[in-house]
Design a protein around this nucleic acid. Structure first.
Length: 329
DNA sequence: CTCCTCTCCTGGATTACATCA
DNA sequence: ATTGATGTAATCCAGGAGAGG
């Protein structure tokens, strides 16, 4: 992807380097980073390429994060760690105390692997994520939430697609609200894998007492949200870059106007022998014969605009001795 | 080897519902 | 109590990839 902006008489271009790693291969769940290469002068030094961090990063969130209590099944597998069955009871912080929902036989219609999942050990520590966030300790309408939760869980059970279930009940589709613990655990999983293979999906579903389809949908929506957020961040960053370039364009146009005004106000400067500028034909740098190091175009421009000394610009071959070619290479 | 069909998965768009101010 | 905004679970659809005939 390449994006080029042309600004007046001083065209500058910058490219949007698409170094985006594949999400599935990246350790970073967001994994999307843009690098905006502009000229050093153009690029705002305070605007590094933006990478969105959508995951909880504050110490508070981290400390409250259930990852301190939970393990991602495939992570423990990968690390060869003990499974959660060996977790001390005190660590089972998510074993909230209501409505344990018995697994419905033949529930996992989504994947046949559910019955013979190699991660089946997880089921021995099946957590009860039946509570919605309303009744997990902050009082309020706990009873009502529990009733809703029971209704939702019961409605969610047994049918993977849900639509036929709704058809049978003659009701509209129900919407299960995931508990904070479930959402947090899914977030933690998403941090490790933005996509799930069937085994991971089933293991996660078992662990969270959800249907694999629900886990799948959650990851779909989560990826969509990530992409949306990243797009917003990208737009904001590009907008800032555009503002910076616009400002620089304005400044350069103004400088150009000053130079032209100076030129028209002093039409006979060519006849005055005060200062001689030499220009190298290869690199187009300019040097004066009075100050050999003064070959910066901006310094020349400021010299032109600030001091009213008449200046002569000569082709380089005429003043070989003033600017030997290898001097600046 | 190529083509076709089927299945599965994913992204994008959209809907429907829950929650909150 | 009502309502609009917002967040998000769920659905629908199209397209790509891989397997198998």
């Amino acid at each position: 992807m390449e994006l080029a902006l042309s600004l007046g008489e001083a065209p500058k271009s910058f490219t949007l380097l698409d170094n985006t790693p594949k999400l599935s291969n990246s350790k970073d769940p967001v994994g999307f980073c843009i690098a905006l290469g502009a000229s050093d002068e153009t690029r705002a030094s305070s605007d590094p390429p933006v990478q969105l961090e959508l995951l909880p990063s504050t110490p508070v969130l981290r400390s409250q994060h259930p990852s301190s209590h939970l393990r991602i099944p495939w992570l423990t597998d990968a690390l060869g760690l003990e499974r959660m069955t060996s977790e001390p009871p005190a660590a089972r912080a998510l074993d909230v105390n209501s409505f344990p929902v018995a697994p419905v036989p033949g529930e996992d219609g989504d994947d046949g692997a559910a019955l013979s999942s190699p991660n089946s050990a997880v089921s021995s520590f099946q957590m009860d994520f039946c509570l919605r966030n309303g009744n997990s300790g902050n009082g309020g309408d706990g009873a009502a939430a529990m009733m809703r939760n029971r209704r939702d869980v019961e409605g969610a059970e047994g049918n993977d697609r849900g639509t036929s279930d709704d058809d049978e009940n003659g009701s509209t589709r129900k919407k299960l609200r995931l508990s904070k613990e479930q959402s947090a655990f899914l977030e933690e999983s998403f941090k490790e894998h933005t996509t799930l293979n069937p085994k991971q999906k089933v293991a996660l579903a078992k662990q969270l007492n959800l249907r694999p389809r629900q886990v799948e949908v959650w990851f779909q929506n989560r990826r969509a949200r990530t992409k949306l957020k990243q797009t917003e961040v990208d737009c904001e960053y590009l907008k800032r870059c555009c503002d910076t370039l616009t400002e620089e364009n304005r400044r350069l146009q103004k400088e150009l106007q000053e130079l032209r005004a100076l030129k028209t106000s002093q039409p006979f400067y060519m006849q005055l022998p005060a200062t001689t500028l030499t220009m190298c034909p290869s690199c187009e740098r300019v040097a004066t014969n009075t100050a050999a190091n003064n070959n910066d175009a901006s310094q020349i421009a400021s010299a032109l605009s600030l001091s009213n000394k008449p200046t002569r610009i000569l082709p380089f071959p005429n003043t070989q001795q003033a600017h030997p070619p290898p001097a600046h290479q």
